[in-house]
Each structure stands twice: as structure tokens, then as C-alpha cells.
Design a protein around this nucleic acid. Sequence first.
DNA 1: ACTAATTATGTAACTGATTACACAAATGTA
DNA 2: TACATTTGTGTAATCAGTTACATAATTAGT
Lengths: 317, 317
Amino acid sequence: MEFFNKVGKMAIGSRLRMLTETVGEDAARIYNLYHIDFQPKWFPVFYVLQDGGEFTITSIAKEIGHSHPSVSKIIAEMVKNGFVVEKKDKTDGRRNMVSLSAKGLDAAVKIKDQYADVTGAVEEILSQANHDLWKAIEEWEYLLEQKSLLRRVQEHQKIRESNKVQIVPYEPRYAEAFKALNEEWISKYFKMEEADYKALDNADSYIINNGGLILVALYNNEPVGVCALLKMDDPDYDFELAKMAVSPKAQGKNIGFLLGQAIIDKAKALGGHKLYLESNTILKPAISLYHKLGFVKVAGRPSPYERANIQMELKLK
Amino acid sequence: MEFFNKVGKMAIGSRLRMLTETVGEDAARIYNLYHIDFQPKWFPVFYVLQDGGEFTITSIAKEIGHSHPSVSKIIAEMVKNGFVVEKKDKTDGRRNMVSLSAKGLDAAVKIKDQYADVTGAVEEILSQANHDLWKAIEEWEYLLEQKSLLRRVQEHQKIRESNKVQIVPYEPRYAEAFKALNEEWISKYFKMEEADYKALDNADSYIINNGGLILVALYNNEPVGVCALLKMDDPDYDFELAKMAVSPKAQGKNIGFLLGQAIIDKAKALGGHKLYLESNTILKPAISLYHKLGFVKVAGRPSPYERANIQMELKLK
DNA sequence: ACTAATTATGTAACTGATTACACAAATGTA
DNA sequence: TACATTTGTGTAATCAGTTACATAATTAGT
């Protein structure tokens, strides 16, 4: 399969499908070799039944990892071909108890030889290969159960995207973005308050000239996130992390985290010992971001903001 | 997948199918992650077209290893979604030349990032596994192309069956089988001749008491094959291999080969230097069996049989 | 004891591929 | 030049699974 080597790993799904098909194609012909009138797709169901037990459709489905309609259809076909008999459960009217018929039991004996030969052939291939397909599949099953391909891709996407993000110091030309980004989320969840207007309309005089600073996150050179560090006049805290805002259009690029970390670094560089912040518990992603940054919840302190219902701090060292 | 470990390697087809499905399921959601309205199954076709070239349906199919109707349908869908444009070839009215539209070209750019992330994620899984799925698939593709699973199973079947075959010396109770098995093939392809009746009706006096012998192949203790070694009165040859017959019901169990080898061993044990046989070229499987046993064609010698049109010999040493 | 939730099953529609077939256009050959 | 063969494409049917939905029987909760 020349093509796959050209395309690369992204095509692993297609490649798997094609190998599956190649292997599957021969399966039907293999049954012919043993003169058993048997469809390969029946095999997993047959395998469960082969020792003579009675099972419900659902229990077979669970055992072999198929959906129940699939088993239902397979059983119908096997009944039609005389391999299986159905029986209503006396004590539970929903249950359809299925088991091998005499013919089915007979086939189970015949199939033993085939079983040995196919297993032998597969093991022969496995032994001729340097890389063990059987074990590799098993590992993939495990790894994908631990973390799905989707989530893995998502993480790679996030990392790649966050590499495109630049964190830069505030400049007057970002004044508009600073206000707009904050106004967007504040007025979405709450109402703009007096203190908001003061800070957002006068970033320079209110924040920067008071010993604070603002960082801006650029994505494709567009400001998509902002965060301020306010100098506090408090014996317990040096700075407050505030006015953190990320554009909804730039979500999923880890921008909040990058901004938060950059602000923390700045606070450290400025000799800060303890950071403070206020937020609201309805802002779940924000709260979880603060946790991720290391902030912990602390007891009440008076706040100029109505919307503040949670306070957090972070010890720097 | 507990079940597969219980069933063993025979279920490798099912196991492959399920992994394929798991991987495939996420594929659609991954495209959503990048806000491209794109179906995963389009990808191989898209990949071929992405550099802006024009291709026919068949050439794409060949390149990506799909059937042409599959590509035909995919192209129809992509046209409907505006990713692809069709154009009749001026010089060849059968050809449907397809290429990416402006929208398709645009998507090709967007997809680059996704491509990188998916490749990264797959490589991450690959690196976390001890057994390399990608390389294992590649090896299976190669090994199955060399010799299909069907043929491998067939070979295992043959070996197992031939282990059930016993080669035993002639006894009077096999007289009937000796005649019947030979009569069966002779009268199927030719006509019983005088010499046949003589030998088959009087195995003891004609063959065994003349310094020859007969071996019988038993399968489930039933005689299913016979072969005679006739003492020859000839300066060139010691023995003639003759009256080899295997029941059609017992075909594919390697019985002819086992009988032939056993006869050769006997001839050697009796101090023979050269074996002779006569046959007819319309008996292709027989001729190829004799070749496999080491016999080579030799020039004419008078024969009592009308049907003989080829003669062969084997030097023993 | 009655209603709500859960469980067991079956049916229908869909999916992404295939093979079989049909047909037109181009090419090869006598 | 006429006819057979090959090539390119599309449509229909099939395949082995899926999800969505419907229905009946059982179990749980009040």
C-alpha cells in the first residue's frame, strides 16, 4: 500500500479498514474448505454458544462486544439455518433464550479442526513478522480506552494553537481591546459596574501608573486576551489578578492559562509574595483555570464588586 | 477486549474490525474540531487532489486502493458540497476530470493543521505502545500478498489431515479396495484394459509373489489410497511404480505424496537403483505429483498399456 | 398497588465499503 | 472500415455492522 506511506499516519484508519477487509474476504472461503455451511460473521456468537449453554441476546452481545441488534439478526439467520434454537424464558417473558441445536453442536465439533488450522496460520504470519499485530491491537485498544484519539488530537491542537499565541505587554493601542474583551463577558453574565468603567476606561492611570501592569495575548497579531495585575494596598497581598478576559472566538487555545502564567511570572519578578483574585462561581471555566494556576479559595474580604462571590489566593515563592 | 483473548487468534478479523471502528468513530468528530464540514471518508480522495491537479475517477481509485464506484460516489458528494468540480475531458468523452474547487483548495489549507495534529496524536500512541501497529499492518499487507490467509490455512489443513493418514502394507482384506480405487480413475479417464484386470484381480500372485509390494493409505482406518511397486525384468530399471490411486473423497490430504514417498523408501530398502513409471499427460495432478517426488521424463519404451503416453524415471541413491 | 424507570428484544434506516451489471467512448485488429 | 475488445463511468444490489426508535415485560419507589 504505497499510498499509505505517502499519506502518513493520519490514514491509519483507512489502512486498518483495508487490512480488515483483506482478512475478512478470505474468511468465507476458509469455511468452504471445511464444508461447513457457515458465515464468518456468525463465529463470535457461535463461539459463545459452543459449549451448549443457553444465553440471552443481550448477554451474548455484551460478551462479544457487538450491539444487540447485530446479535439479534445473527441469531435469526442461525435459526433459519438450523444451527440455533430459541426458547422463551418461562420466568421472564422478555428473554429469548438461545442455544445450539443438534446441528449446531455437530458443527461445533467439525469447526474444531478449522479452528486449529486458522489459529496455526495466523500464528505463522505473526511469527514471520517483526512487529506483533495481535499485541499491537491489544495495546491500541488499551491506550484508546485510556484516552480517545479525539482527546489526543484535541491536546495536540491546543499545544499547536498555543504556540501561535504571543503574550505581550500592554500598549495604548490595545486600550480598546482591553475594554471590549472585558465588557463582553461581564455584560454577558453580569452587569457593568462603576468600578469596571473606572478601570477599563483608564487603564493607564488606574492600573499601570499605580504599580500594576497589563498583558495582552495576541493570536495572528490580533489581541484576543487580556489580563491585569493590580498593585494592592493590603498587608496580606501584593497584587490582584483582575480583568482577565479571553475572546470566545479564541477559546480552546489555552490562552487563559498562558496569560495567567505570564501574569504570575511578572508578579514574582516584581517581588510579590501573594496574589489575590475575586470571581464568581457561575464562571466555572474561569474557576477551574484559577485552580490549575494554583489559586486556592480563601475567606471573605470586602470587595468593590457586586458580582464577586469567591476569593482566591496564590502564594508565590 | 477480554473476549478476544479467550477466543484466540482465529478472531483476529473481528478484532481488527472493532479497532477500525473505534478509530473511525472519532474521525468525524476530529473534523468538527477544526470546523471543516468534511467527511472522513473523503480524505483519501481529497489527499490526491489537494495539490490542485486534475484526475480521472479511475486514476484516483487506483491510487488510493478503492473500487471505482466508491470514488465515483465520494466525488459526487464532494461536488454537492462544493469541494470539487467536474469537467468532461475534451479529447476523451469517457473521462470525468475532477479537481478541487476554490472552496476545496481553501479547505486544503485549513486541513494542514489538522493533519499535523492527527499525525502527532497517532505517533504519540505509537510511541506509547511496545508493538508498532503501523509497521505490523505493513508487514501483514506484505505477508498476505505473498501468500493469502486462505492458502496458509489450506496448508495447515493439509498437514493436519496428512497426520491422520497411515500408510500400511497390503493385506488380503484390502484386495477389494485395491481394485475399486484403481478401477474408479481408470474407467473415469480411459477404459479398463486386459493388463489392468490381470493385476487388480490377482494382486497376490501378480505383484507380491513376483517380488513387488503394495502399500495402502488409511484415513480413519478406511483404505483411501493404494500404490504398487512392481519388480521389473529390465537391465535399466529395478521397479515400476504403478497402480497409484487415491479416492476423490480423500483429496487434498497429501495422500498421493505420502504413498509415493513410502513406495520410494521401500524400493530403496529393497536395494533398487532406478524406478520407472508410465502415465498419461491428461492426468495433470498425477504428473505434477511425480515431478514433486523427483521423477523425470524419459524416452519411449514399449508399454502394455494403451493409455500410457509418458514415461518417467527416478534415480535412487 | 400504582406509576416510573429499567431491561430485553426486535425493526427500520443508515453507513461506507464492496461486487455485478450496463453502457458509452476509444482503441486494436483483420 | 467494421467489429471486437478495452477502458471509464455510473447505478443497483449487497454486506456487516451501526444508531434510533418502538414495544413489551420486569423491577423499583412511593
